[in-house]
């Protein structure tokens, strides 16, 4: 009887240990899956009909995530303020050389398509330290210098990092989302492409081409 009790206890203990191991492993996998789902918002490169890699964002076909950020004067600017307009939401940074190359193209395309209801919203991803007022002021000045030198005529917002998650993490710059008049993301570009590609996506946002 005693021996049988010991055997049953040992079996139960072993079962409990295995069950715990299984549960712990399952829990770990759940967490990994969560992380994976979060990273899946980052989009991917796929080949189009002409075998050209195209960045496909999971935001495409969905409403552009809402945000409110400050411009360089401290004024709050919301995505909702641009309701009814076609937008290029361009994430950039002063330290990003390809962003600098792309900027004159955006300026030119805005002047060409602005009358049709197109606007560029440039969102700087430069580091911002709000805790240190002096540093914050210096950082803003650095961005302002760049904006002035590049003669960027469109709204420039700061602290893009604070909205990076809903926009897929912004692991690389420039990243641009093209939004139609209804607020839906119709195209996205990761990295610098060509001016023609920018124009094609602007036309998509304006509904000129599909």
């Amino acid at each position: 009887m005693k021996r049988n009790t010991l055997v049953v206890t040992a079996v139960l203990l072993i079962l409990a240990a295995f069950a715990w191991a299984g549960w712990a492993n399952w829990e770990y996998r759940m967490q990994a899956a969560e992380r994976l789902r979060a990273s899946a918002a980052q989009g991917e490169l796929v080949l189009d009909a002409g075998d050209v890699p195209q960045y496909v964002s999971p935001l495409q076909g969905n409403p552009a995530p809402p945000f409110t950020l400050e411009d360089l004067s401290g004024k709050k600017v919301s995505l909702a303020d641009f309701k009814g307009r076609a937008l290029a939401i361009n994430f950039w940074a002063t330290w990003c050389a390809p962003c600098k190359v792309e900027t004159p193209w955006l300026i030119d395309l805005r002047s060409r398509y602005g009358a049709q209801g197109f606007e560029v919203l440039a969102i700087s991803a430069d580091d911002i330290d709000r805790k240190d007022p002096r540093k914050f002021s210096d950082e803003k000045q650095e961005i302002a210098r760049f904006v002035q030198r590049m003669q960027m005529p469109y709204p420039v917002l700061i602290d893009g990092d604070s909205i990076s998650d809903p926009y897929g993490g912004l692991d690389a710059l420039p990243t641009t989302f093209f939004v139609d008049r209804n607020g839906t993301v119709v195209a996205a570009q990761l990295g610098m492409t060509t001016k023609d590609e920018l124009e094609r996506n602007i036309k998509k946002a304006l509904g000129i081409v599909k």
Partner: peptide, 23 residues
């Protein structure tokens, strides 16, 4: 015991998300 063990291991090994990490 054998069935419980197999179940515990199966739950632990079951893939929850089919795609590999992208980056």
């Amino acid at each position: 015991a054998a069935l419980a063990l197999a179940s515990a291991l199966a739950i632990g090994q079951r893939p929850l998300f089919d795609e590999a990490p992208r980056s």
